[in-house]
């Protein structure tokens, strides 16, 4: 399991709808902020790269210091699953993204969930963290 990992789901209009620190390292508030800043900045790159490839999984598109940003773009470009990590386990990250994508689709199918609003489901959170332990 990687020591640092920050996972975020960014919805249409660049609104973050889910965020989780899934790394094993002890969490510091400053670091969490920095992680989100890096992910936020990486959106600029995602928006260009997403159109250049048909793949949904964009490997390490950005980095800052030792931290790498991997992105998984859903088919409609509206939703981006972004992971900031310090390991280079591409396969694991890809599996992680695929499984989380499935989870995300499930929550989208919930008729009570308004697309574009924050995902508050604790079930979703638990599952994502379990997947992070499994793959990262």
């Amino acid at each position: 399991m990687t020591s640092t990992a920050c996972f975020m789901i960014v919805s249409r209009n660049d609104i973050p709808i889910y965020e989780a620190e899934v790394g094993a390292a002890p969490k510091k508030e400053e670091a969490v902020h920095q992680h989100q800043f890096i992910l936020h900045a990486a959106l600029d790159i995602v928006q260009d790269i997403a159109w250049t490839t048909s793949a949904m999984f964009l490997k390490s598109i950005d980095r800052f210091n030792d931290l790498v940003v991997s992105v998984y773009v859903t088919a409609a470009i509206h939703t981006r699953l972004m992971l900031l990590h310090d390991s280079r386990n591409d396969d694991g990250i890809k599996s992680f993204f695929q499984e989380v994508h499935e989870l995300y689709i499930k929550s989208l199918l919930n008729p009570l969930y308004l697309p574009g609003s924050r995902i508050k489901s604790s079930h979703f959170d638990t599952k994502v963290r379990a997947l992070a332990r499994k793959y990262l």
Partner: peptide, 15 residues
Amino acid sequence: VVSLFESQWSTLQMV
């Protein structure tokens, strides 16, 4: 309405 709240990264904004 959504576009009004574009890029609302509250954590970053607060920082």
